[in-house]
Computed example of a mutant assay.
Amino acid sequence: MNLFRCTALVLALTTVSLALPAQAGQAVEENSSGDPMYTVEAPPAYAMIGDLVIARPLLIAATVIGAAAFVVALPFTAASGGIGDSGKALVVDPGKAAFVRCLGCTTTGYNHAD
Score class of each variant (00 low, 15 high):
76 F>T: 09
76 F>S: 11
76 F>G: 10
77 T>H: 11
77 T>C: 05
78 A>M: 12
78 A>T: 15
78 A>V: 13
79 A>E: 07
79 A>M: 10
80 S>L: 11
82 G>A: 07
82 G>I: 02
82 G>S: 10
83 I>A: 07
83 I>T: 14
84 G>N: 12
84 G>F: 05
84 G>A: 11
85 D>P: 07
86 S>A: 13
86 S>N: 15
86 S>E: 14
87 G>A: 09
88 K>N: 15
88 K>G: 15
88 K>R: 11
88 K>I: 13
88 K>Q: 13
89 A>Y: 03
89 A>D: 12
90 L>K: 00
90 L>A: 11
91 V>Y: 00
91 V>T: 06
91 V>Q: 01
94 P>L: 03
95 G>C: 06
95 G>S: 12
96 K>V: 05
97 A>L: 10
97 A>Y: 05
97 A>D: 14
98 A>Q: 04
98 A>V: 10
98 A>Y: 00
98 A>M: 03
99 F>H: 12
99 F>I: 10
101 R>H: 02
101 R>M: 09
102 C>E: 15
102 C>I: 01
102 C>M: 04
103 L>Q: 10
103 L>S: 05
104 G>Q: 11
104 G>K: 02
106 T>H: 03
107 T>V: 03
107 T>P: 00
108 T>S: 08
108 T>L: 08
109 G>C: 14
109 G>P: 04
110 Y>D: 07
110 Y>I: 05
110 Y>M: 08
110 Y>H: 08
110 Y>C: 00
111 N>G: 01
111 N>H: 07
